[in-house]
């Protein structure tokens, strides 16, 4: 009989596979949107104290450009793509097809482009996970923010801290061949996410 430790380990392995599948699909969607091949440089799945979250983005006062999405349906949670401004401008140049170094501000068009990027990556990620689990996960419209990391994270952390102290997060960085884009693709599900039944429709044990 499986003991609890083995069950938990197996469960985390399945979640790890699911998240990686979701991230691969998100990056595939981004590549299609931009017309260039993006690669995932790293994926790090872990559980950390919610109090330590702002440090992930450079500290609570660090100015970041955040693309924020919530999801609902079979479970709920938050997705935040966070970049320091210079990397957000690099993304904008890629999205708009401008020469490197063109993007220097977050005007309305830039915000719309970044929002669409969040929409595509968030939706592709959620679709891959939802399809594998045989459930429905609906993304909200994206919101683009430029503010202190702590202030942006407050939105998600207030909801998460109402349930528990730790946050299950997925960090990822990605880029194209000639440009490195450092940033965080943070997935912060609410507690119910890890209780979703690991259905056999793709997420096989």
């Amino acid at each position: 009989m499986e003991n609890n430790v083995t069950k938990e380990f197996n469960s985390m392995l399945i979640w790890d596979q699911l998240i990686r599948r979701g991230m691969a699909n998100a990056i595939f969607g981004l590549s299609q949107m931009v017309g260039r091949e993006f690669q995932i440089n790293s994926i790090n799945i872990r559980q950390i104290s919610a109090v330590d979250m702002p440090e992930l983005l450079g500290g609570p006062e660090c100015m970041v450009v955040g693309i924020y999405i919530t999801f609902s349906g079979a479970s709920s949670g938050h997705i935040l793509l966070a970049h320091q401004p210079e990397f957000a401008y690099t993304i904008l140049d890629l999205l708009i097809g401008s020469p490197r170094g063109t993007g220097k501000s977050l005007d309305e068009m830039s915000q719309s482009a970044l929002g669409e990027m969040g929409n595509v990556t968030g939706t592709f990620f959620l679709n891959a996970v939802a399809d594998a689990l045989g459930v429905t996960l609906n993304p909200s419209p994206p919101v683009v923010l430029y503010d202190m990391a702590g202030a942006i994270l407050d939105i998600a952390l207030a909801e998460i801290l109402a349930e528990r102290d730790d946050v299950f997060i997925v960090e990822s960085s990605f880029g194209v061949s000639d440009r490195t884009i450092q940033g965080k693709f943070l997935i912060m599900p609410n507690a119910s996410f890890l209780q979703l039944p690991l259905a056999p429709s793709g997420a096989k044990r």
Binding site: V143, I155, A158, E159
Partner: peptide, 14 residues
């Protein structure tokens, strides 16, 4: 109120 444009999220009035 950092965000006010996501529908159906009263928690955003936190």
């Amino acid at each position: 109120r950092i965000i006010d444009t996501i529908p159906g999220k009263s928690a955003l009035d936190i």
